[in-house]
């Protein structure tokens, strides 16, 4: 049976598509699945650097579709997991170098030999996005609890439905319970109500994302990372498991921590 082709998209840039793709892909591999990631953001490739594989690129997605190399030659095997690989985007070409038909054909071919093909979509609603969803059997929309990101997510959901794909599922990224508690950020049910699609996961804001990405690692390696833990849950839900949604509460800050923070101990 062919594997799942899951496209991760958002409309708006900068909401965490690439980080989400890298973390879910790695989590799926940790959970024993055979996974290939495709960076569909031709011209602005980043999944390679987030995965720490940027020095190992020889061939890219455009080389594959143009027949310059075999698919296997463009697949970079992950440092830790032999069952995880990446097909990087071309950096010096543009989105028109690949067509939706070519993407659909490639992803279907890869799905024959992999449990999951994850496609990291570029921002926007133009050809890069159309390429990214061309072969999809499932679509995941990433948003943050901000008006601009939610508005663009709604637009993308409309386009996915117009393309007659199954209804996308939602990841709410960079969620901050402390701000929600103060009434300064929309809560999970607010965003669910507005977008009216099923929730796949809520990922709390987490500094580990930045520090691990600095090193070319992913947060799912860090067992203490709240975001990493959320991505692992999302990977399980993608495999059809029912995992309860943890309720994120604002951290209780004690008197002593407040005092130390005031003195400049940021991580207390």
């Amino acid at each position: 049976m062919a594997g799942h082709i899951v496209t991760i998209t958002s409309g708006k840039g900068g909401v965490g598509k690439t980080t989400t793709t890298a973390n879910i892909g790695t989590a799926l591999a940790m959970q024993g699945r055979n996974v290939v990631l495709i960076d569909a953001d031709i011209g602005l490739r980043n999944l390679d650097i987030v995965m720490g594989l940027e020095n190992r690129i020889v061939y890219d997605l455009v080389d594959v579709v143009e027949g310059q190399c075999r698919v296997r030659q463009a697949m970079i095997r992950d440092k830790r997991f032999p069952n995880l690989s990446l097909i990087p985007a071309a950096q010096t070409r543009d989105k028109e170098a690949v067509s939706p038909d070519q993407m659909a054909e490639l992803t279907r071919e890869l799905a024959e030999s992999h449990d999951f093909v994850l496609v990291d979509s570029p921002a926007g609603i133009e050809q890069g996005f159309r390429n990214a969803i061309a072969g999809a059997t499932a679509v995941v929309v990433v948003t943050t609890p901000e008006v601009s990101a939610v508005r663009d997510a709604d637009r993308i959901i409309g386009l996915v439905e117009a393309a007659e794909l199954p209804p996308p599922r939602l990841i709410l990224n960079r969620f901050r319970p402390d701000m929600v508690k103060r009434g300064d950020m929309m809560d999970v049910p607010d965003v669910e109500e507005i977008l009216a699609i099923d929730l796949l996961g809520v990922v709390p804001e987490d500094q580990t994302i930045i520090t691990s990405t600095n090193r070319g690692e992913v947060a799912v390696f860090d067992s203490h990372s709240p975001a990493g833990s959320a991505f692992k849950d999302i990977a399980r839900r993608l495999q059809g498991e029912t995992i309860a949604f943890p309720r994120y509460e604002a951290a209780q800050v004690g008197v002593m921590s407040r005092f130390l923070r005031a003195l400049g101990f940021a991580r207390v």
């Binding site: 508005r151 709604d154 009434g183």
Partner: peptide, 19 residues
């Protein structure tokens, strides 16, 4: 009003006109 409530209300309005 809490800014989150304002955000939700504004989004509801703008999405209807978008759609």
């Amino acid at each position: 009003a809490a800014s989150s409530a304002v955000a939700k209300q504004r989004l509801k309005v703008v999405l209807v006109s978008d759609q």
